[in-house]
Amino acid sequence: MSTNSENRSKVVIVSGGSRGLGQALVTGCLERGYTVATFSRSESPFVKTLTQQDPEHKRFLWESVDATDPAALKTFVNKVASTYGRVDALVNNAGVGIDGILPTMRASQIEQGIDLNLKASIYLIQACSKQMLQHASGSIINISSVNAIRGHSGVAVYSATKAALDGLTRSLARELGPKHIRVNSVAPGYFESEMVADLTPEAKQRIIRRTPLGRLGTAEDMANVVLFLLSPQASFITGQTIVVDGGITC
């Protein structure tokens, strides 16, 4: 069995690392000296810049992957393992918002949301955990949501997928713990992102008024907690959902 205390760069897979929170996660991991592999459907300017800076993929790898294709996810994980020798951590960040009142929601929208937010995460964990088991160490972090903690009208299916991720987190923590693989969730509240871009200024002000810490979060606020959970300082934490919302759900 090997440990993470070796003098080498930790290999982290971040799903959906091309923009938004994923971009903040990739940036934070690279700043801490980690090797980062990420995928998304399409290349973003952020990804393009990083690829140009590291054309030989010494510490950064991006590929276009359809997250709804389990075989493609497995192929990506195996490529990361063969390129860098192992997979130390996974951040399940890729997902979509699923907005709308359930009674009038199209079945295709429900299917797509569950495929991307839940099934893709499960298949990605399955592929990564096989890599982690070989070294009997690892860390998996699922990006959940405050919608998994509290009820909100118009996001029922989204809430269901995120609450499912939290359940997955707890059971997997027990299942994989004996092999020193930690599994945790981070549940972001409202933070400056595409998710809140459609809110009116009044709605944003209302959220800020209800938030004890008096502001919206930032992607960096969320990424910092993920980076903590990836770090050796969190080596005794598993099976937990950490809510990062400025106190709005307390």
């Binding site: 393992a81 955990s129 096989k130 890599q131 088991l133 070989q134 009997a136 299942e175 994989l176 004996p178 092999k179």
Partner: peptide, 15 residues
């Protein structure tokens, strides 16, 4: 061997 040990074995053998 536990079921998790078997999973570890199968993962290693797969590689």
């Amino acid at each position: 061997l536990s079921s998790l040990d078997l999973a570890q074995l199968v993962a290693t053998l797969e590689m």
